[in-house]
Nucleic acid binder design. Sequence first.
DNA 1: CAATTAAACGAACGTACGTTTGATTATATA
DNA 2: TATATAATCAAACGTACGTTCGTTTAATTG
Lengths: 198, 198
Amino acid sequence: MARTKGSIGKDTQAAIWQTAKKLIVSHGFEAMTLRQLAAEVGLQPASIYRYIKSKDELLQSLMLEHMGQLLTACQKAVPRHATATRKLEAFVAFHIRYHIERRTDVILANLELRSLQGEAHAQVVTKRRSYEEQLIAILEHGRNEGAFAINELEVAAYAILAMLTGVCFWYNPKGRLSIEEIINEHIALVMRGVAASK
Amino acid sequence: MARTKGSIGKDTQAAIWQTAKKLIVSHGFEAMTLRQLAAEVGLQPASIYRYIKSKDELLQSLMLEHMGQLLTACQKAVPRHATATRKLEAFVAFHIRYHIERRTDVILANLELRSLQGEAHAQVVTKRRSYEEQLIAILEHGRNEGAFAINELEVAAYAILAMLTGVCFWYNPKGRLSIEEIINEHIALVMRGVAASK
DNA sequence: CAATTAAACGAACGTACGTTTGATTATATA
DNA sequence: TATATAATCAAACGTACGTTCGTTTAATTG
């Protein structure tokens, strides 16, 4: 056989990416083989190479794309002119919702950074830092306003991000709690955690 | 060559375990090769098999040992008869200190669970659950006392654990903050986050 | 000091991986 | 409808992996 009936490059490309994400998250990047990926997509191993340059480049694409989208989505979701309290609430809600809806991408980006090398690794780290700085800026704004009581902005930011991202690892779509309920619980924890006593 | 001068099994065993942890954390379990491990320890690949039954069994040993020690250490560190507030403070302090001091083990246990299979996987998950339940019990105690205001015990527990464990991933021994300072920041965040308003 | 055990070695095995090459069939274009 | 292009295949390459085997040397024991 060669070209198969009904085969369209765009669809195959999408299937490869989606399947790759799933396999990487469940087995790890190193443990996933291109043969396994090809088999799940319904191709021969060699055919993958019409769509990727190498296995490493596949991981790079997946991670850089995810980080880029996360940054732009965040900038849209958090209001630029508002109180720090409102900004922080918006940030928490955005982060949890975005991360739950793209759990696969998030887990991948968090667990496979060490499999990334060279230029791409540096780029991902830089983008992650940009994202962290958006939260740090909000916390600083709140401290200047007198609304937040925080000694160490960076520690607080890391703590909050770890807490929120952690949802990805236990969230169950069939579970008792809706995304909104989960968001509200976390908003309560975070806002009380940073709020200045009155 | 064969047996080398001054070679002692106990030392080699320890070197293998320690080096394995380091390599697994930095490259991932699947990416670490036994040849690499042997080379760093100063052995031929075959010699590793005097100390392990297989690569998989090595990971199992490392993870089960870590989880077991974590559980017993926790039970010693958190007072059995005290207010929920004191218990929670003790738990936060213990968790951060223990996790920072054994960052390698912790990162390994958190990132490589998916490389574990069968019986060992189930055992690790069970032990992790036991640990989570210790925190849940403290939170429930505090809610019954009226000291904590928490709607969802489990969500709060997961959130707190994620936040505290996150320290392992950014802590820098040469950084500006001491372990005590980091612990205090987190105690502040957590205690205010869960405290009932008076 | 002889015999036994402990701790390593060197060489090899089969397997599976990422990747390359060139041919083959389906769709799009003119 | 003839031609060009897109999408896949089958087969193979070299490499590196986990692991096994039998041997060799160092330390321990009686």
